[in-house]
Design a protein around this nucleic acid. Structure first.
Lengths: 196, 196
DNA sequence: TGCATCTTGGACTGGTCAGTTCAAGATAGG
DNA sequence: CCTATCTTGAACTGACCAGTCCAAGATGCA
């Protein structure tokens, strides 16, 4: 049915995502997006709609990609809770160490800019942070953590995970990030029931 | 010596600081600053220089104001370390609860935007975060925490403090923020020497 | 081959941006 | 009261912004 798209939508979305992730919404112009994706403005608009719509697509793509990895890391929480939570943080550390993507976290960055973003985008970021807490809560419940403790640690650990995003933007060393994590891990190990 | 300034520099700086704090550097135009401070563009430029210079002034003002409060909270760390650290976090919680200033933290926000800010501004934010860690390190050393532990907790606690900035931007409840803090506090209490 | 349909490049629009300029007004010293 | 000096308001500049539009070209089907 007529002319085919001359580009891979997934690759273009990844490029746009990285651009938004590095520079934020306000400091990313359509010319920036056009340059980094290699697409013309017309192609961007016809394929993804306006800037807000494209940002939402990137946010969802980010949440899905890393959400899957977090889920996988936590999947063995019922057998090895400490190792599972450590694997959870390892997802973040690997993302920060990955030279192909920017430092920080697209969702944390979106949350920080919430007051000046469209309500739809802000709500999506808050929703994603809620998912992250739910993910941890489910895993900690499966790990036999007392109900209240599971809720509390889910909130604490997701907050600590976000703090890594801020710190990585200041070029904090991997060692410092591990220090932040280790202290929360030790608190968690005290709250877990003794291994049978 | 001729016409006097018709405004209070401190009040104007506070208004500019709040504006940058709420909306960030990129989403704050000179018209915004002119409106919130009540000053004309000419007055802004003649008194504070360009946008970057004004931002730096606001950043320093913010760091000094809350830095003093953090210092004061930690001042009795050698006698009552846990209460001192709790008072430290209380500074942040009170700031977040204050209806006269935005949620979040100007320094954390600046750090998140570092890649698209002037190197001078980015460096100042990183420096401020370093001061925060040093503040905690000194206090924890005074509290007889082992040397390595003091360093580690200084990094952890300052990171957790930044996580409150992110969470407060998502309208997290005061109770959630306290949960985040409490778990770090319990980890700290385990590391402190028994009270004599 | 011929045609209908989709993609693409580039020009264009109205608006906003940071920063400059300058004349008019206010002030204080003499 | 006069004048030199500073402050202030408003207009202006060139650049960049998001979003629109359309003609030219590519494609697949009959």
């Amino acid at each position: 049915m007529a002319g085919k798209k001359q580009f891979d939508v997934g690759i273009a979305l990844d490029a746009a995502m990285v651009q938004f992730w590095r520079a934020g919404y306000a400091d990313t112009s359509l010319d920036d997006l056009s340059r980094t994706t290699g697409l013309n403005r017309s192609s961007l608009y016809s394929s993804f709609g306006d800037k807000d719509s494209l940002y939402l697509r990137c946010l969802d793509r980010y949440a899905a990609r890393y959400g899957n990895r977090y889920d996988q890391a936590l999947s063995r929480a019922s057998e090895e809770p400490l190792q599972a939570v450590r694997a959870f943080f390892e997802v973040t550390l690997q993302r920060i160490a990955d030279p192909d993507v920017p430092d920080g976290c697209l969702i944390a960055q979106t949350a920080m800019a919430a007051p000046v973003l469209s309500p739809t985008i802000a709500a999506r970021a808050i929703e994603a942070l809620g998912f992250q807490q739910a993910r941890l809560r489910t895993a900690l419940n499966a790990a036999q953590l007392a109900d209240g403790d599971a809720d509390d640690f889910a909130v604490h650990l997701s907050a600590v995970n976000q703090s890594l995003a801020v710190m990585s933007r200041t070029r904090a060393s991997q060692q410092q990030l591990r220090t932040v994590i280790d202290i929360s891990m030790s608190a968690l190990s005290h709250a877990l029931p003794a291994r049978s």
